[in-house]
């Protein structure tokens, strides 16, 4: 089997998503070790701009598998096309970002190729003819290093973990994709309000818990998030307040919510249960505000203020607003 590596790009609104460029960069490092070529694959229609981006992303070859029937994502339709391209290009590895699309598509591809898949990979290597990868288990409470024992090696890579690179312009080949009979198809994509930063992409996460006492008091949390300026901070929540119906499920941080890793995380009125810590312990800097000096959240926080959120948060919001304005 050849050592070529296929990277499946995620194209939305005609543009390549950044985590796909990170995956191409990770693939080029592996290819430098095993002598293979990196092939970036885009599937769908209207792929020209995406291919132009991919051509300078470090890939050796770009393939556009075009089909009007695949203008919208279809897990089964895309998987068939990707599996065909893996075979046509003699690939020994298939990579994609661990995003909503990657999590839906790549397991299907792995099944069609009758092989394993390592998900949410944070480090990759190739040595002595085999691929190894490191991935979190138990929501990041532990990590496993795994060695693939079946071919090809298939993995989804954690976003914001590998740095994208650039490279000399690679050739772009267009092939006609055979969509086949589609079982599932995306009908509509409803964009979130444009001023809302996705929780997992936010530079700052301001999370609130039961210590806020009433749902309307989350205004304090929203105001602190807004103080960082537009497009910077997102609001998060503990499960206690999500289950109480104060906040939407999409905001839950933790083992059964989202795992976030922002440069700055605020836990306000959150006790720091182990399931919550699993979702935020890899944040670079953690700030806790809690009136109980014994709250477990202080054991992981870099900085803590012991005090009443209703008194501390408005003062902090004002101070952050001034600090941001002074920049």
């Amino acid at each position: 089997m050849s050592q070529n590596i296929l990277v499946v790009a995620e194209v939305r609104g005609g543009a390549v998503k950044r985590p796909s460029l990170e995956a191409v960069a990770a693939a080029t490092k592996l290819a430098a070790k095993n002598g293979g070529k990196v092939i970036a694959l885009a599937v769908g229609s209207g792929l020209d701009a995406a291919c132009a981006t991919l051509a300078t992303s470090g890939a050796h070859q770009v393939v556009a598998a075009e089909s009007a029937a695949l203008a919208q994502f279809s897990g089964d339709g895309f998987a068939r096309v990707v599996a065909e391209q893996v075979k046509a290009n003699g690939c020994g590895a298939v990579l994609m970002a661990h995003t909503a699309m990657g999590k839906d598509l790549l397991p299907r591809v792995a099944a069609l190729l009758d092989t394993g898949l390592v998900s949410d990979v944070v480090a990759l290597d190739f040595a002595d003819g085999t691929y190894t990868a490191r991935k979190p288990v138990f929501a990041g409470k532990a990590f496993v290093q795994v060695r693939a024992t079946r071919n090809p090696f298939v993995a989804t890579l954690r976003p914001n973990n590998f740095e994208p690179t650039t490279g000399a312009a690679a050739p772009v080949a267009k092939v006609a994709a055979n969509a086949g009979d589609l079982l599932s198809v995306v009908k509509e994509i409803v964009a979130a309000a444009s001023d809302k930063v996705p929780l997992q992409e936010a530079k700052v996460v301001v999370a609130g818990g039961r210590g806020l006492k009433e749902p309307q008091h989350f205004k304090l949390i929203e105001d602190l998030a807004a103080a960082f300026g537009p497009g910077v901070a997102a609001v998060g929540a503990s499960r206690a307040v999500v289950d109480a119906g104060w906040r939407p499920h999409g905001e839950q941080v933790g083992q059964t919510g989202k795992v976030v890793s922002p440069p700055l995380y605020f836990a306000i009125g959150i006790s720091g249960a182990i399931q919550h810590l699993a979702g935020m312990r890899t944040a670079r800097t953690i700030v806790a505000i809690n009136k109980d000096p014994e709250a477990p959240i202080f054991k992981v926080a870099d900085y803590g203020i012991v005090g009443d959120a209703f008194e501390v948060v408005p003062a902090l919001t004002e101070a952050i607003r001034q600090a941001v304005a002074a920049r």
Binding site: T99, A100, S184, I189, V190
Partner: peptide, 13 residues
């Protein structure tokens, strides 16, 4: 289902 920054509506046979 929720995807990054948006919500997807999907039909499936």
């Amino acid at each position: 289902r929720d995807i990054e920054g948006a919500r997807e509506v999907v039909t499936c046979r």
